[in-house]
Design a protein around this nucleic acid. Structure first.
Lengths: 210, 210, 210, 210
DNA sequence: AATGAATGAGTCTTCATTCAT
DNA sequence: CATGAATGAAGACTCATTCAT
């Protein structure tokens, strides 16, 4: 029974943490980390300021909390891994679709933390390791393999992979900036990217011939 | 004589403004807008706090000042315009080189303001119009023309252009995040991107044949 | 219970506000609005600077707070109303006594805000309406009635009433200026004024005769 | 010649001082001592900030300058002295007229300094001696004499004199407060006051009889 | 565990004053 | 003498954090 109670307690704690983080993401996304006040977050979460400090060590810790939650939410690793067997074009489309959806879902949380992440060295480090480097390494591995198999032309693998990742980072920034083309065309992004990245802009002879 | 004096005075004012903005960019890039104090900026600029306020209306105005200076520095418009006659491959390489150099030069200033730009609606709007939209429109125009000429395959022009811009935004973020591959491979970025964007990842039959 | 708690809470808030306003009046009266610092007020009130701002929106709001409190304290309206039936001489003596006492009691608060009231257009307006105009209108009404009844000789009612009010304003300023005659003779003021105002300085024939 | 030059120089200095004090009075009257900035005064005077400090030791010294100028302007002493021989009623009317005119002329300067005078102990002292006490003593002397002669009924001389002075102080405050009755009826004040003060409000038997 | 009043360190900003030109 | 840029001390105000209830 004690075990069951502990379980319930843990669930309650987790629920309260999420309740606070949801509110935090909302407020941070709207006003930014520094202009958001703990009082405001408390109000948005429907709790008191004191309660926030029962679940998080500090205001800065809320950023960490959001980052962690984003990471948990993010199963790119597994999904990517699953698609690693596919042919490149399918793989990229699948990967792009996945990213595009993740960004849509995590927009608020990501927008909430990105400016702060770009500002604080520690967050930068942590964010880079969790979100950029891990994926970069997987992609590098995949591309390198495919290059060896002749499915992808020989390229500067690290930079090419960074360019791919950069597109999504950049598109996300475009969304924050309110670019209409990106916001309204978001669903088409995976295919457009697949064409761009996979086929290139240069028209192919056989296509011209065809 | 009064005219000459005015001229000198204006130059002094401009020099002082730049002196302050240089220091500001340094401090903002290091600590971020909010953690940077006016006292710190003053010290870095070698002036008193009061002097800052003789040249800028507020701390926030320093961000605007940096943004304006970036825009003045930025002659992409003209350079792009000059390359608009070139064949696509040359055009893109030239454009990429240009961007890559601008980012290297403006890194500090850009890093100083980006997080704040992402946070403040007004700055966002202003930044988007000055740095994103203007260039997007020029690129769209170019790409559209080339598509009509058959030099570029038919693509979703707005999104493709956003994707191109996004790459640089994203790569810049990667630099802030300290990604080694991007930082150390920066000089190779234009060519890698040209290959990626123009030729695509998919190996071409004739190349395979060759 | 919630209602009871609310009641207690409100009382606590009111008590804290008064505690702060008392200290504020003291410090303002001594140093004036601008030379008084919030730190000093906080110390005098035995709270922290932050606490002041939990109860008042700004330093300027403290002036408003004092003014409001003065107005609440001030029941001249009712007392005047009560005396409105009396014969003029009794009425004036009663009214003068009342004013004289109010000034003595409210000296600190009044001295605290008067210079600022004379300076700020908004406060001026507000002060004038609460303290001057309301009473002027009541007095005018009374005097006009008594003139009609023949109990008061025909006079320029508005100006006469202003003159009466002015005496108290002026005497209060005299107190601030430290005039010994006014300070030490304060208790005699009502009677002296009654004689002055009601009988005039000119000796009366019958009195001379008597 | 050197003497003549000195004379011219002195006149220039005096003119410049007055130019500055005029502007100061205007700005102080409008914004109050503390909210007025030296920059603003300089602009209003058509000189630079530095120039102000060539003629006055400090911002506070400008108040002293205005007070001194008011005192020079003010020849009440002499005029009062001249009227001291008159019968009471004529004397008071003359004195009241004089005061009323002085206030109208000196309104701006007086309004400029009064709030500050009420606030600063030193100014208070100085103001009290120059403007209040001197006149009070003269009035006391006059009234006392007239009482002895039987021209004025026996009264509490010091308080009566203070009350008389207070009326003008109070009326001046009323003007600052923007009271319409006082502002628009200003020309009638001397007569109204003469009636009020000299004859009193109480109707006289013989008048009733008449 | 939740509350929210109290805290006070920290910061932007103002502005009287100085002084080199 | 006049100027006005530079100064920097001072102060109102904010807000993350604590803790008694």
């Amino acid at each position: 029974m004690s075990a069951a109670q502990d379980h319930i307690r843990e669930q309650l704690i987790e629920a309260r943490r999420n309740q606070i983080l949801d509110a935090t993401a909302k407020v941070f996304a709207e006003k930014g980390f520094h202009r958001a006040t703990t009082k405001e977050i408390a109000r948005a979460a429907g709790v008191s300021e004191g309660t926030i400090y029962n679940y998080f060590a500090s205001k800065a810790d809320l950023v960490v909390g959001i980052m962690t939650r984003l990471a948990e939410l993010d199963a790119l690793g597994e999904e990517l891994a699953g698609a690693l067997q596919s042919e490149p074009r399918e793989f990229f489309i699948a990967a792009f679709r996945h990213r595009v959806n993740r960004i849509r879902q995590g927009q608020e949380m990501l927008q909430a933390i990105l400016p702060e992440v770009l500002t604080s060295p520690e967050l930068r480090e942590s964010f880079y390791r969790q979100y950029v480097l891990r994926i970069a390494e997987m992609l590098e591995q995949y591309v390198r393999t495919r290059v060896e198999l002749g499915d992808i032309r020989p390229v500067n693998v690290p930079l090419t992979v960074r360019a791919l990742q950069s597109i999504f980072v950049g598109l996300f920034v475009m969304r924050i900036l309110g670019d209409e083309a990106v916001l309204s065309g978001w669903d088409d992004v995976p295919e457009v990217l697949a064409t761009l990245i996979f086929d290139g802009l240069c028209p192919r002879p056989e296509e011209v011939a065809g």
